[in-house]
Amino acid sequence: NKFNKEQQWATYEILNLPNLNEEQRKAFIDSLKDDPSQSANLLAEAKKLNDAQA
């Protein structure tokens, strides 16, 4: 299913963002699990935070 693929991709991407700390990473991944339909939005937020902390 589409959300499952998006969720897996977003999880992979978030795990590989270098500037997030473990707590932030875990929070994003927990949110992905809670609502896979928000995968794209959550990934965008994670990338923004990652860039802000660069």
Rank of each mutant, 00 (worst) to 15 (best):
N1Y: 01
N1L: 04
N1W: 00
N1D: 15
K2E: 15
K2P: 15
K2L: 10
K2R: 05
K2W: 06
K2H: 15
F3V: 12
F3E: 13
N4P: 05
N4S: 07
K5V: 06
K5Q: 14
K5T: 13
E6L: 09
E6A: 03
E6W: 08
Q7Y: 15
Q7S: 05
Q7P: 04
Q8N: 05
Q8G: 05
Q8D: 07
Q8F: 10
W9P: 03
A10I: 10
A10Q: 04
A10L: 05
A10P: 02
T11Q: 15
T11A: 15
T11I: 15
T11K: 10
T11M: 15
T11Y: 15
T11L: 15
Y12T: 14
Y12F: 15
E13A: 08
E13K: 05
E13P: 02
L15F: 04
L15V: 06
N16E: 07
N16P: 01
L17I: 01
L17R: 00
L17S: 01
L17F: 07
L17Y: 05
P18H: 07
P18G: 05
P18I: 05
N19L: 04
N19Y: 15
N19W: 14
N19A: 11
L20K: 00
L20P: 00
L20V: 02
L20N: 00
L20F: 01
L20R: 00
N21A: 09
E22S: 09
E22A: 06
E22I: 07
E22T: 09
E23M: 11
Q24R: 01
Q24T: 04
Q24W: 02
Q24H: 02
R25G: 02
R25T: 06
K26M: 14
A27D: 08
A27I: 14
A27G: 13
A27T: 11
F28Q: 00
I29V: 08
I29K: 03
S31P: 02
L32I: 15
L32D: 00
L32T: 03
K33E: 14
K33I: 14
K33W: 10
D34W: 11
D34M: 14
D35R: 09
D35V: 06
D35Y: 07
D35K: 10
D35T: 07
P36G: 06
P36M: 05
P36Y: 04
P36R: 02
S37P: 04
S37M: 08
S37E: 14
Q38S: 09
Q38M: 13
S39P: 03
S39Y: 15
S39A: 14
S39M: 11
A40L: 13
A40Y: 11
N41Y: 13
N41P: 06
L42H: 04
L42G: 01
L42M: 12
L42S: 03
L42V: 15
L43S: 03
L43T: 04
L43P: 00
L43Q: 03
L43K: 02
L43R: 03
L43H: 03
A44M: 15
A44F: 11
A44I: 13
A44T: 11
A44E: 15
E45H: 06
E45Y: 08
E45I: 12
A46Y: 02
A46F: 02
A46Q: 01
K47S: 07
K47R: 03
K48D: 08
K48F: 08
L49D: 03
L49R: 03
N50Q: 02
D51H: 11
D51A: 14
D51F: 08
D51V: 09
A52W: 10
A52R: 09
A52N: 12
A52S: 13
Q53H: 05
Q53I: 11
Q53E: 04
Q53P: 03
Q53F: 08
A54D: 09
A54F: 08
